[in-house]
Structure formats: structure tokens, C-alpha cells
């Protein structure tokens, strides 16, 4: 019974995670400029792969796997914003412009 429940939870997590990953990839194509694409990749992509790792943890269920999967998820959640921030900062500093439909830009000096 418990095994069946864990399997169903893992299955739902897999479906949700892979859908997020796919939508993040679609977002890379549909969004207009590098800064908006970063939203898609850094949030939706991270949540997607995090969910897939958690699904693995839920399915296997022994302590060492759960710990390592959780450590991996925490690690991704910590590093994704840092790399997104770094990339956004650098591309702004170097002069990649915002898309034309942008409404405000208070960073412009």
C-alpha cells in the first residue's frame, strides 16, 4: 500500500518535473531577450530538475539516496540564482540591451 502510494507520488512528480523542464526550454525560444529568458531557465528549469531528483528519492526511499538527492536539490537551489545573477549582471555591463518592449530601465546611468 505504502509502496503504491510512493510510486504514484513519484510518478506525479516526474510528470510535473519534466513538464517544467520542457516549458523552460520552450521559454528559451519564445521570450524576447536574454534577461527574460533567464527567468525561464533559472526558475522553471531548476524546479523541473529538482522535482525529478525528489521523485527519484521518493521512489527509492533509502536514507543515503534521500540525503544525497536532497543535498543535490539544495545545491541547485543555491547555485541557480547565483549563476543567473552573474550572467545578467555581466551581460548588462557589457552592453546587451533590453528588448524594445521594456517599460523601465532604472539601471541606466
Amino acid at each position: 500500500m505504502i509502496d503504491g502510494l510512493a510510486d504514484i507520488i513519484a510518478g506525479l512528480m516526474i510528470i510535473a518535473g519534466s513538464t517544467f523542464a520542457f516549458l523552460a526550454a520552450v521559454g528559451l525560444w519564445r521570450l524576447p531577450d536574454i534577461y527574460t529568458r533567464m527567468h525561464s531557465a533559472s526558475k522553471t528549469g531548476t524546479v523541473g530538475s529538482g522535482l525529478l531528483l525528489l521523485a527519484l528519492a521518493a521512489h527509492v526511499g533509502d536514507t543515503s539516496t534521500v540525503t544525497r538527492a536532497l543535498a543535490g536539490v539544495v545545491f541547485f537551489l543555491l547555485t541557480a540564482p547565483i549563476s543567473a545573477h552573474l550572467l545578467a549582471k555581466v551581460s548588462y555591463a557589457v552592453g546587451y540591451r533590453l528588448t524594445d518592449i521594456s517599460v523601465v530601465d532604472e539601471l541606466k546611468k
Binding site: A21, A41, G45, G48, L53
Partner: peptide, 30 residues
């Protein structure tokens, strides 16, 4: 642009991690 490519590479790594998790679940190799 170059940042676009780097972002896509970053995203590629995230997708690969998801892939690995699913494969690990399918085969049972933790």
C-alpha cells in the same frame, strides 16, 4: 548572442540532471 548560448548551456545541464534522475529511477541505480 553569446549570453543566450551560455544560458542555453546552463539549461542543458539542468535538463541533463533531470534525465539522469529519471534514468536512475528507471534502472534503479542510485
Amino acid at each position: 548572442t553569446l549570453p543566450d548560448r551560455i544560458l542555453a548551456l546552463d539549461m542543458l545541464v539542468a535538463t541533463a540532471i533531470g534525465f539522469i534522475a529519471v534514468i536512475g529511477l528507471k534502472t534503479g541505480y542510485t
